[in-house]
Design a protein around this nucleic acid. Structure first.
Length: 903
RNA sequence: GGGGAAUUAGCUCAGUUGGCUAGAGCAUCAGCAUCACACGCUGGGUGUCGCCGGUUCGAGUCCGGCAUUCCCCACCA
């Protein structure tokens, strides 16, 4: 026991194994035809991002799947990468430049990109090296960045192809404008937030009837200068006689028509709505229906433009105050009410977005029907399943995707316009990846693509699509469709859904529609595992600004990578948000330490080679069947059963349950029971018992390696002079073990025998706990339930004495007037009791009362004809058995009570 | 407005297609330096399974309604 420390110190082995894995190319992509493939894709983190709490869970899960697949004899690749992260990165770089007093517009596009790349290369990839500390086993050599040359070609190819196929168009539409970052955003990038506003009631004078007014209500008085009409619902009697007349816009005074439109809600405010087509979606639509002009009063940066008249140049929120002031002054303001409404906010810019009419590139999604079928038909499976509904619902209401961004950082749109010609006319466009040959006569579109319009080809882009040769050399055909994607449900629309769509469109030849077989071949992944969000103890999202997030690397340093991994998996309910508690990290660490010591214990007697140098058959050959006792046999049978359950849970992606199963099997079944029960024979150097320990520990290490890779590697190689990774060692299945154990002829009776004894043991321990810490002169008398029970106990007498540390144990034929406990093997009496006969009698009487109630309940059930008729046979039998047991137990208690009464 | 999730011990959660007397971990209490591990061992206590109905021989589990909390989608100025 000298060669292993008493406490497992993670830091000692983590660096060592990380290097070893890399040196040996353990995670490299390789292909063996005939072997099953396994592929998973890393959701590419932001290239300049750092490890956060979400990664711990997400990446650990991916690693678990990946490493487990290696032990299941598959050819495995886990493809890592990073995302250029469009807006967020551009904002970051702009901020960095601003520190040096540089405004990005001043240095121009080229210089900006140069500096951005420098900055990325300086800070980029930090996250990948941080992930190494967590122990992730991805194919680092084939890491992909979304701005890499090959990948970019794929992104642009997708654009060009979609244009050719008629799915991409340029158009002037209402889009979400972010005045802070000054770019268009997709609908998905806008989140609605409730906001308290002032609802202003403003009266507009009727031109045809001086002195009469029509009253509207608005939360945006600063856009009044953009009003082109006032509308009411045609069914609204209050305004019936005004339709067709005109009113005077109170600011930037002008005559505008009063119109009727169904879209107006009569019950809101006054029932009259000012129409500002440039600044509200509903208004835009009404304007279109009535052929109204459009007056845009806002500049891109959110200030009022020349159309704002006297308010021009003011920020929109300042202008809001000012217009109210002016309206009040001129007597147009009737009243102001408090009002709460939802306002669209740009996540990145963290400012309210502006609905804005703008010329942008849009994508009409292809293969929507197929994408729905891919999920509803079970080609792509979601875990947990409920996210399918969310996905399908989004597909049902899917709207065209605004894919152009007014940024520099990203994939520049591959469209050129003929200089000096009308840009609005597609005859003057050149759309290709490489551009026109006479590029000097053309001007390239200045916009870039939405980041998600690059990461949406990730599943095949990382294999070099559309370059056939690259796809061949990267084994695309072998690995695609990928097996499992681990991600958060928050990007189900942004990413997951779009990847499915792009894959259905691009993997395979161009086709208008797909049949099921084609869908099955094109899907990007077969399974999607959605993790929960990591929150703090009181349920808040973890965030830097709240300061409620621990530093993941500190946790790893404190509890070890294995400890953190196991701890977070133990506490992560499947698909449910996880309330993070650092105590759970300690649990993970404790588990590792327990494993370390359990190994150390049996290892101390082991004179054989390390597991790395041994096969299962070698260990089994040291077992002689006749030397196995009933508990050894039960242990091996339970090991098989455990593997069965584990495999079932793991295959169903029930990782949380699988981890808890491992925990209880290892801790309760193996350590608390079997190690203790076999100690005497281990001390005696029994080779067979040692081999049983070897079999169990070996299997545990193989099953645990995906979860806690460092410590298991270390133990696997303990005593081995030239360490060899257990990475690709095949983990025996339950069936393999059944086959291997065949010569032992294991049966269920051994397990039953063992569990009877465990119950006996627990009861006896309960009895002994009455003594507190006293041990001196303690003796037990056992009144066996039967001859067979006595035999079972005699067989295990040495074990029993060791387990309860009581030396004097004898059998008795009659009940004694002593404190007692009843077990399936008989009653146990404690000779050095502290209770007197009276309290003992009371205790027994109470127990009898309790059992009597149960017996009554059993009887009632069994005498109910309907129960006998309807309940399945095994339930009826179970109830009968229970009744018998309870009656037997009560009889025994009565006997003991009688014995106590004699004195 | 539409959809989803949650509600079980002080806390965090399990609880398969309804079936034996509802479980685990943490916390807590009592005891233990026992020769793998105090990051450990042994034992104890703790529940109107959110509420009200219904189906059933039998409901934590299925159905209907209600309440509270959270999330997503849509959106009225």
């Amino acid at each position: 026991m000298d060669d292993l420390d008493k406490v497992f110190t993670a830091a000692h082995v983590e660096q060592k194994w990380t290097s070893k894995w890399m040196e040996d190319g353990c995670f490299d992509r390789h292909v063996e035809e005939g072997k099953e493939s396994f592929c998973t894709l890393m959701p590419p983190p932001n290239v300049t991002g750092v490890l956060h709490m979400g990664h711990l869970l997400n990446q650990t899960l991916q690693d678990v799947f990946t490493r487990r697949a290696r032990h299941c004899n598959k050819c495995v690749t886990w493809i890592p990468g990073t995302d250029h992260a469009g807006i967020s990165m551009q904002v970051k770089v702009e901020r960095e430049l601003a520190k040096d007093g540089i405004y990005h517009m001043d240095i121009g596009r080229e210089e900006f990109l140069k500096r951005a790349c420098e900055w990325r290369d300086r800070h980029g990839g930090i996250i990948l090296s941080q992930l190494k500390k967590l122990g992730v086993s991805c194919d680092f050599k084939n890491s992909v960045h979304t701005l890499d040359g090959d990948y970019s070609r794929g992104v642009l190819t997708a654009f060009v192809e979609l244009y050719k196929r008629g799915y991409i168009y340029r158009g002037k539409r209402m889009i979400n404008w972010c005045p802070a970052t000054q770019t268009a955003l997709s609908d998905e990038e806008v989140t609605m937030r409730p906001q308290r506003n002032k609802l202003c009631y403003v009266r507009y004078e009727i031109v045809e009837r001086p002195g009469e007014f029509i009253e509207i209500s608005t939360t945006r008085p600063e856009t009044i200068m953009g009003d082109v009409a006032v509308a009411a619902n045609p069914a609204d009697e209050r305004y019936e006689n005004l339709i067709g007349l005109h009113c005077r816009r109170p600011l930037n005074a002008a005559e505008i028509p009063i119109i009727a439109d169904e879209a107006v809600d009569s019950s809101f405010g006054t029932g009259a709505l000012k129409i500002t087509p440039a600044h509200a979606c509903a208004d835009f639509e009404i304007g279109q229906r009535h052929n109204l002009p459009i007056i845009d009063v806002l500049a891109p940066n959110g200030t009022l433009n020349a159309n704002g008249g006297e308010f021009a140049g003011l920020d929109r929120f300042v202008a809001r105050e000012k217009t109210v002031e002016v309206l009040r002054k001129i007597g147009a303001l009737v009243k102001i009410e408090d009002h709460e409404s939802n306002v669209g906010v740009s996540e990145r810019g963290n400012v309210p977005i502006e609905p804005k009419l703008s010329e942008q590139w849009f994508l009409k999604y292809p293969k929507v029907e197929e994408a729905k079928r891919a999920v509803s038909g079970g080609f792509v499976k979601f875990y947990p399943r409920r996210w399918e509904k969310t996905y399908l619902h989004w597909m049902d209401g899917i709207k065209d995707w605004c894919i152009s961004r007014q940024l520099w950082w990203g994939h520049r749109i591959p469209v050129w316009y003929k200089k000096g010609f009308d840009r609005g006319n597609s005859a003057n466009w050149h759309i290709s990846i490489d551009g026109p040959s006479d590029v000097e006569n053309w001007e390239r579109d200045g916009d870039v693509l939405d980041t998600w319009a690059s990461s949406w080809i990730w599943p095949f882009g990382v294999f070099g699509w559309p370059d056939v040769e690259k796809m061949e050399s990267s084994a695309f055909r072998y690995f695609y469709p990928t097996d499992v994607l681990v991600t958060g449900p928050d990007i189900i629309f942004f990413w997951v859904a779009r990847m499915i769509i792009s894959a259905l469109e691009f993997v395979g030849p161009e086709k208008k529609s797909l049949i099921d077989e084609e869908i099955a071949g094109r899907i990007p992944f077969k399974n999607v595992y959605f993790t929960g969000i990591i929150r703090d103890k009181i349920g808040r999202k973890m965030s830097k600004s709240l300061g409620n997030s621990p530093e993941p690397l500190d946790l790893i340093a404190k509890y070890g990578a294995d400890g953190v991994r196991f701890g977070i998996l133990m506490s992560a309910p499947n698909g449910q948000d996880l309330l993070f508690n650092e105590d759970n990290m300690a649990l993970g660490r404790n588990f590792c330490n327990k494993l370390w010591n359990a190994f150390r214990f049996s290892h101390s007697w082991r004179h054989s080679k390390s597991f790395a140098e041994t096969q299962l058959s070698d260990i089994l050959s040291r077992i002689s069947a006749e030397d196995l006792d009933v508990d050894d046999r039960a242990m091996l049978a339970n090991l098989v059963e455990f593997c069965d359950s584990f495999e079932r849970l793991f295959t169903n992606f029930d990782i949380s349950a699988a981890v808890n199963l491992i925990n209880s099997f290892f801790w309760d079944e193996y350590c608390s029971w079997y190690v203790e029960a076999s100690k005497t024979r281990l001390h005696a150097g029994d080779a067979t018992v040692l081999a049983v320990h070897g079999v169990v520990m070996r299997q545990l290490l193989l099953i645990l390696n995906p979860f806690i890779p460092f410590i298991t590697e270390e133990l696997w190689n303990a005593g081995n002079g030239s360490p060899r990774s257990m990475q690709n060692v095949r983990c025996e299945t339950a069936d393999d073990l059944r086959l291997a154990f065949q010569f032992l002829k294991l049966g269920t009776e051994d397990s039953e025998n063992t569990s009877r004894f465990k119950e006996f043991l627990n009861g006896t321990r309960r009895l002994l706990s009455q003594l507190g810490g006293r041990k001196d002169g303690v003796a037990l008398s056992i009144m066996p339930q039967s001859e067979a029970a006595q035999g079972e106990l005699e067989m295990r007498m040495a074990k029993l004495k060791k387990l309860i540390t009581v030396e004097k144990i004898q059998f008795t034929a009659a009940a004694l007037q002593l404190p007692s406990v009843q077990t399936p093997l008989g009653s146990v009496f404690l000779h050095t009791g502290i209770s007197d006969a009276t309290t003992e009698r009371e205790k027994i009487a109470k127990e009898i009362e309790k059992i009597s109630k149960l017996i009554e309940l059993n009887n009632k059930k069994l005498s109910d004809e309907k129960f006998i008729e309807n309940a399945p046979a095994n339930v009826v039998r179970g109830t009968q058995k229970m009744l018998e047991d309870n009656v037997a137990r009560r009889n025994e208690l009565h006997r003991i009570l009688a014995a106590l009464a004699e004195h």
